[in-house]
Amino acid sequence: MQVLKGVSFELGEGEVKVVFGPSGSGKSTLLRCINMLSPPDKGEVYLRGQNIKAPEVNINEMRARIGMVFQHFNLFAHLKAIDNVSIGLRRVKGFPKEEAREKALEVLDSVKMDEWADRYPAELSGGQQQRVGIARALAMDPDVILFDEPTSALDPELIGEVLQVMLDLAKSGTTMIVVTHEMGFAKAVASEMIFLGEGVIIERGTPEHFFISPKSERVQNFLQQLDVLYGSHEKLLK
């Protein structure tokens, strides 16, 4: 079954692209193609000019440079928060234990989860878990971070804290591709927005383009629906 039927775009340093669209349009698949968790049957992915699909490339090394934040967090349940963040540093990047721990604490601090470093994921709320998830991806100093509907599985009152972290990241120049319906976030920091439908890009442009004068009626309807559902979230953003 073909999910993506022809998607192509470029991402510059420090850019924040927001991908949105109806369910089944292939947004998650797109992200998983980018970090090769689900390699594309046709097409290439280039990271800083290097074709990461090439057979001679070590895909694990490439993945270490592409971060991912999951809708259902996927924190390592048997590890404390600090270990979740540091395990990549230790096992993938070969950091010595102490250094890894120090850096992990720093990153946890940046997402305001340093106090919870010694807790297990089951002891944390959804929003807290997701922030640890972001820290885990951040700690690897990736070239780009992919966000797969990071707030969709969160209770409404927990969405704000995660969006705030993402906002700060975006403002500090992190390169991000974010699949989300949080239009307030998009309005605030997206450099480009991409509307994906049935496996192809239906429309793309700046936030202003979308919110002031979108071209297709389909996109207009979709945005209206989103506003009904998520409009109030703008208040969550400071």
């Binding site: 968790l37 694990n60 999951f70 924190l75 990047k93 885990r136 690897m140």
Partner: peptide, 13 residues
Amino acid sequence: TGQLMAAQSIGMS
């Protein structure tokens, strides 16, 4: 499966 996916996403084989 999410756990293995997350592990691979940070570069683990």
